Computed example of a mutant assay.
Amino acid sequence: MDPWVIVVLVIALALVFDFTNGFHDTANAMATPIATGALKPKMAVLIAACLNLVGAFLSTEVAKTISGGIIREGSGGVLISPELIFAGLVGAILWNLVTWLFGLPSSSSHALFGGLIGAAVVGAGFGVVDYGVLVGKVVLPALVAPLVAGVVAFVATRLAYAITNVPKDTGGGIRGRFRYGQIFSSSLVALAHGTNDAQKTMGVITLVLIAAGLQDAGSGPELWVVVSCAFAIAIGTYSGGWRIIRTVGSGFTNVKPPQGFAAETSTAATILASSHLGFALSTTQVASGSVIGSGLGRKGASVRWGTAGRVALGWVLTLPASALVGALAAFVAGLGPVGIIIDLVVGGLVVVVILLRSRKNEVTSANAVSEVSAAGEVVRTPKATKRRRKAASTQGGAS
């Protein structure tokens, strides 16, 4: 196959992934302000799209981590071919769409890393992955960042409730004014999302240009790459991602405005600091950690450890699952041009099936907030505990 054809194909797939990343992760910024009534769904998504676009221009450190870090470089450039990068993107896109179909707030970032690593290992061996960079800039941040964001959100929530101490939190009055603050804090999360997630696609496109010998090893993304990735993620964000918003946002119906403000601020601060350091974070995990921390900041709250375990299991499965799909796509791509065509046809059919299946249970801005979020359900609030005890006593009396 002509090298130019595969390069163009990879760039197109990378932008498709960037688009899916946008609608998949919209909920990270906008689920809580939608749930608390701070913003209307369509306005929230429009704001997120605009700030994703702006954020993509603020830094390229994460892009450099992907283009010149995770995959080793040799004297002639990176040690994998454009065909393997193509296979990795197939794995990432398919996993993103599967989790979108079921409304699962999984990590688009880890789907991308998993797809690339699975394809690279199959095509070039285990030695092609720089495990030091993988652990230092992907795995450890994935473990530490949600914890840090959760602790910050916990402290911020406690402070918010202490400063605005009133006899009863009805969601109005002084504490209700935090809704206005949520407009700012959720916008900051959207900006941070653009600075971190759009760069991952920039890094992939730069990686394929280096692999094809069209760009010098160790160089950062070109301006046209930055611009195209910024617009792709912004358009994806504006498309809504209503399934993910439904899953994440409705679980936050018990989240009060002070909690939402604290969670969003800690999420944004964590992501912005990590982007500056070149850490490729999962915004989904950071946002979930912040929500759990803010929930625990409410007096009398506790943790549903079983639910927390299920959330963590979903995080853990994303990277190996997408790696498996990427590895399979790489094995098929190894057959040559025929393998690339098979990957495209099979991948396209899977996408069509997912889209047709999604129409049976269509989710729009009108019904996006209707189901319980796994992350929100991790925290057992005092009010919810009272309701369960009352229901249990009623059933006991009836029997």
Rank of each mutant, 00 (worst) to 15 (best):
A119I: 00
A63N: 10
S274H: 06
A87W: 02
G173H: 14
E83T: 05
V45I: 12
K360S: 15
G213E: 11
L328D: 00
A323S: 12
F19C: 01
I93C: 04
G300K: 00
P258W: 03
V255A: 08
F178M: 11
Q182T: 12
K360I: 13
R246P: 07
L355S: 12
G336D: 13
L324D: 07
E264M: 08
I210A: 05
G347P: 06
A35Q: 04
A63C: 11
S187M: 00
R179P: 00
V62R: 04
T195Y: 05
S186L: 09
V225I: 15
G194F: 02
N361F: 15
A198P: 01
Q199N: 15
Y238S: 09
S186V: 13
W100S: 02
V303N: 12
S365T: 03
V226G: 01
S186F: 07
T195K: 11
T394W: 08
G236K: 01
W4A: 14
N196H: 06
Y238M: 12
A190R: 03
A301N: 00
A44I: 11
G249Q: 09
G88D: 07
P82L: 11
T170H: 14
V90W: 01
S288A: 13
P167N: 15
E73Q: 15
C50I: 14
E377D: 15
G293Q: 05
V189E: 08
G132A: 13
R72W: 14
G69L: 01
I47P: 08
V338N: 07
A374M: 09
I271S: 03
